[in-house]
Amino acid sequence: MAQLAINIGNLSLRNPVMTASGTFGYGLEFTDFIDLNRLGAYIVKGTTLLPRQGNDYPRMAETASGMLNCVGLQNKGVDYFCKEIYPQLKDFKSHAIVNVSGSTPEDYAECAARVAELEKIPAIELNISCPNVHDGGMAFGVSCAGAASVVKAVRAAYPKTLIVKLSPNVTDISEIARAVEAEGADSVSLINTLMGMSVDIERRKSNLSIGTGGLSGPCVKPIALRMVHQVAKAVKIPVIGLGGIMNAEDAIEFIMCGATAIQVGTANFIDPAVTMKIIDGMNDWCDQHGVKNIYEIIGVI
């Protein structure tokens, strides 16, 4: 048994495997398939101060090795989460982390402050990178000033572990990472989805209701690895890597590129039990390669 425990800021995780926001519901959707207690952490779906209906159907287009989505942050709002969902999550042993989104720095901060009151939620992931909403979301994440403004507002309102999720739809992701680190982020997670399109040539229309969507799945993994590698060299805070991880070997690639932890996203749609296989597979890989502690291979490239 290799030592897989890692730390993200003040947060200790039993292993580096987390689930990506928007691909794992509130975690409860997966309890028929996996033991939530075994995860390092699970990140619940993007939560906003007020409820959102999201974008119109169709919201999804399949691609050869991935998918596009334009869900647009459909959620019932932070109060619903606190009242209805939190009581169902608080007794699981692994950490529930809330992905927080918003339209202005003020409502990001207010949403974060509400979540801060929940004793068993030790961290939030700030979503400044959703490509599917017009107001806020990625608008903040594509400039250093925009990203810094949101992180500054939230940092003042949120005392626990603050993870900031970065957009790959930028010229230089390491600049943005440095900007959020300077404002007090405890960690960065990357990458969110890449903006893309899919066309129905018979109808001469986009397959997605808003025209574009965010690309995820194995097709984005090489880009995600490159960006994790870049960012890990640029900042001192721990990096959480995600983008197309389908198995333990993919996860190890991210760790070697500099990720302290990883998130599994789209793969949950293909195999709802994949996270358990990744945890076991990482442990086996470490054992087979004489790695006693996962920290031995973080950022070896």
């Binding site: 928007g22 691909t23 794992f24 519901g25 959707e29 997966f30 779906k45 209906q53 999201g54 119109d56 159907y57 169709p58 919201r59 999804m60 399949e62 998918m67 989505n69 869900v71 459909q74 789209t266 949950n268 749609f269 709802p272």
Partner: peptide, 27 residues
């Protein structure tokens, strides 16, 4: 039979408009 990805209520792709707002067809 809306297009869906996960089938278990996680991805929120298969929604239909209802009197309660957008809901997942899969769940």
């Amino acid at each position: 039979e809306n297009l869906m990805a996960c089938g278990v209520g996680a991805c929120l792709c298969c929604v239909e408009k209802t009197v309660k707002g957008n809901v997942c067809v899969c769940t």
